[in-house]
Design a protein around this nucleic acid. Structure first.
Lengths: 238, 238, 238, 238
DNA sequence: CATGAATGAGCCTTCATTCAT
DNA sequence: TATGAATGAAGGCTCATTCAT
């Protein structure tokens, strides 16, 4: 019993080791730079061993993407449970986004890489389905918050707009800003000095635009988000 | 003189021909699919000739990116001149974004590709500077509109926020939405049925959030943007 | 004693099972397609177990070849005993050849594969000796028929020719035709419509050329061979 | 003019060099042993250069096979023209077979290798057609001799047998004997001491069996074939 | 004995880049 | 300047064989 489970643990450990080695290469040097040869060399295992764990390169990338999406989903779920007040819950999710892209920058980068069609197409259908499911679950968490807000009378979703489409606005704002931060070689040279704070301000303004209650000042928002942020990474979630 | 300039014209023509052939490959099949062999074959020139024009593959990609950024800058400039009213000018720029990503999808795709660090790093410093200049000029066009709005009393930029940071909000919203539209395999399956319209609504709401005057209803916005859109591609600009 | 012999039986059973699984792969998909991984997976035993039975891949092929040669030898022996008349005995052996290549096509294919020098050289010397013995025993059966024919006055072997060399003629004719039938992609397109019948006619003509008595017409030959054929696969031989 | 044709000559030379290096490997060590790496190393050219000449490994094998089949066809054509007498023409072709398999043993071996279905299937369709055409032309040369013999009253083809089927007998006899000679590890140990001479005797006997006129003794046949043989490799044919 | 993870040489193929003509 | 053959490192992947458990 013991021996078997030890072996299984070793295998699972190695799988995680492969992914841990692959992630920074993928993130900092791109898909092409991630080669099985190089990975094997870094692992100090033979190339064939790699192939005992993953049938091909694409599966490694897909596995990384799933890890990342899962992490984000969990963070969203935790964040959405941190308060009974709908606007605070939405803010907590925004906070989770910030944390995810900043503290888990490599996860965010992998997620973005997956949005490259070539890699997406090469991954196995099984993984594609898993990835879509991850996205849908994350979306439904946030849309759930919106629906709860509507039910509680905190928010009115404009006519002809679904809860998901309202979420899409915040998603675009957040995703776009983080993508630009990560990729624009010199945001500050262009005159954007504190992009993260400014995007929080835009998010707050957008909420105000939708008259999401209860209204709170930006300063209150900032301190609240700070508190929420500290509670997102807590004890082991899910 | 004449002979030389004819030769120069020929060279420049060929350069444009190379880029025109490279763009669709790059966009639809990815960076890896763009090979010098293939390009040379399609051009009906020898591979060596290619290398007389571009010292390496990355330079071709960078040149394409510059073309694309230039186009966007021109569209922004045209858009910003279509009205004397600051809010309308901002809307026109939003409209230019929509058009750019939709009608010039290949340009947008190349722009995104450049945000991949590997290609960016491999391109020559000269091109890197050119690219940054493009971005800065585009930004200054939009920031100029914001400043004009402030000067005209149409808008108050919050304390501690630069005009550029205010622009960054709209940029993030627009860029983020278009990036998600282009890459999310199934936005509609997640419940986002008309992402383009909904993002226009979010933009309108954000403007309202900033109390950008003169206030106009969303329906008015829609019809105005439609009119502006038709004037962006006009006679040859710049 | 009992336990041991049961174990031995189990081992021998598994060996046969391996060969039974390997043969169709080898025959229909070629030497390269036969991989130890695949074999082990089909057996539902581990790869290592395979290596307890056969020290390497070539030995498996050689073992298959021996099985096939043994089968052919047994068929020759049975055939040679079906009649007291020498010419009829020779015909019965020809008939055995036809049956072997047609009904036991997979055996014939393996036999041919062994004629590939690479496999032959890699197999163990022990197997090589076994294979040679098989061939010699088969030859001596046929040569025995020739010698009996000479002794009975039915046949005169030309001067300077051994009984084996006479056999070699019939062997070449039969082997060559079957090899060509098995491998020529389109014998009928070349104008050879009924190769099997025509080769029986050539064999009959060759016998006539050697004035092998008693002379019988081709039609008689055909019906006689038909009868003999049915008796070759009878009750378990040898 | 001169320069161009020199380059072309060099290229064509290298192509021949590749084939010349590949043939013995293919013949003596088999299809698997022929690797592009090894070929390149022996050529003292880079691997990439190989691929400028042949798009893949299979094409090299197919090119070799076509060379071999072409050679045989030419030998058959020359042989068939060496005499006005039909039986002598047939004998000359038999002689060509002997020479082909003995003097051009590597060509014969490649031809046999092609009869391996795996290789056959992998080669390009264009080559497959070429190969079939080669076979058909060779067959029609020999069948032509048979038809001429019939027309001249030298031979009667049995009822229900086509000229091609009659040829098939001689083809099987010759092909089979040479295949066995090439592959049977120890023909002499089995008692076949002079397989080539004995097969000539069988061929002569088969001709007698068909009463192919004019009858000549085996000794005459032997000396005639010797003379014919010397004339097959003459001045550059076709 | 059975297991199956680990090995690593080897395979075929691609392609950006160079350079003699 | 134009050419395109030559280069050779690198890539993804396979598989017979070994050996610690």
């Amino acid at each position: 019993m013991e021996t078997l489970s030890r072996k299984q643990r070793e295998i699972s450990d190695r799988e995680r080791q492969i992914l841990a080695l692959a992630r920074p290469i993928l993130v900092h040097e791109g898909y092409q730079a991630l080669s099985m040869d190089r990975l094997a060399a870094q692992m100090e295992y033979a190339k064939g061993t790699l192939y005992n764990h993953f049938p091909n390169k694409e599966e490694i990338v897909a596995a990384l993407a799933i890890e990342s999406l899962e992490l984000r989903r969990k963070m969203f779920e935790r964040a959405s449970l941190l308060s009974p007040i709908s606007r605070h819950r939405m803010m907590a999710i925004g906070c989770a986004c910030d944390l995810y892209t900043q503290e888990c920058a490599e996860h965010f980068a992998v997620e973005q890489m997956l949005r490259n069609s070539v890699i997406w197409q090469k991954s196995s259908e099984k993984r594609q389905v898993l990835i879509q499911q991850c996205e849908m679950r994350a979306m439904s968490v946030v849309a759930g918050v919106v629906r709860d807000a509507v039910a509680a009378g905190d928010l009115t979703v404009p006519e002809h707009m679904s809860a998901e489409e309202l979420v899409f606005g915040f998603w675009s704002l957040t995703y776009g800003s983080h993508a630009l931060i990560a990729s624009s070689p010199s945001l500050s040279e262009v005159g954007v000095n504190d992009p993260v704070r400014s995007i929080r301000y835009h998010g707050w303004t957008l909420m105000n635009g939708y008259q999401w209650k209860p209204f709170i000042s930006f300063d209150e928002t900032e301190s609240l988000m700070h508190q929420l942020g500290e509670r997102i990474f807590g004890d082991e979630p899910n």
